[in-house]
Design a protein around this nucleic acid. Sequence first.
DNA 1: CTAAATGCAAACGGTTTGCAATGCT
DNA 2: AGCATTGCAAACCGTTTGCATTTAG
Lengths: 134, 134
Amino acid sequence: MNLTNEEMMDFLRNKDIRPSNIRLKVLKYLLNNITHPTVDDIYNRLSNEIPTLSRTSIYNTMKLFKEKGVVNELSLNEKEIRYDINTNFHGHFKCEKCGMIYDFPVTESLDNMEGFVINSKSINYYGICAKCNK
Amino acid sequence: MNLTNEEMMDFLRNKDIRPSNIRLKVLKYLLNNITHPTVDDIYNRLSNEIPTLSRTSIYNTMKLFKEKGVVNELSLNEKEIRYDINTNFHGHFKCEKCGMIYDFPVTESLDNMEGFVINSKSINYYGICAKCNK
DNA sequence: CTAAATGCAAACGGTTTGCAATGCT
DNA sequence: AGCATTGCAAACCGTTTGCATTTAG
């Protein structure tokens, strides 16, 4: 993913978010690092190029991004929240050995849910990935 | 579910857990309250009948129960961990209005996972339940 | 000039830890 | 006596909050 600054600013404005320096840098990081990063991952990386950066600003940014539908939160039985910029529905697999988180397509069918309105869903698997398993 | 103390003691021993007063009371609570309680839920209820009870003991008990396969942990985008004594696989639906958590059967099929070993999985839905929606 | 964005420091809250006290065999 | 269980208090740590400072239109 290699968007220009202009394209990223338009992307944010389309989501009803005013572009700012931090927001653009976070967006760029998310687009270039599809690793489902934590707030600390993002902070540690960006604080190099923005020395005055605070964790609070990353928290603020992720809260806004989530409210505006730019990211989804992942809760993968960890204490930290992870963020996924791919908001198309997909499942996640977390390798318990190397910690890597994989995306994969999944389809499910559920019964006995008449009258229930589903707003969101999360499908997570835990185990050993193909790379660690060979 | 109405097991005698003897039956619950056998149940624990079969899971390689030495029965103790607290462990039996927690087990009984879990069997009679299929509401996916938090540590605080369990603590608040049991501290009535065990005035000297501490949260630490509930944490200790749940850690042991989880290690021995008596319960599964649920992480439902909340800050607290919930516990489910039904360890047969099933999905969960959390109502965002009333907070109730429903169990339901679900089957899924996933692709592109050759070589991946799955140890556990969690399938969670969020929305409005039938009761709140009518 | 005004409102939004950023940043600092403290508070919050669920969980973990170290160790002492208690209970059980 | 010796080991497991329980409990207290403090630490831990990701996140939130209040408020002051800076930035931008």
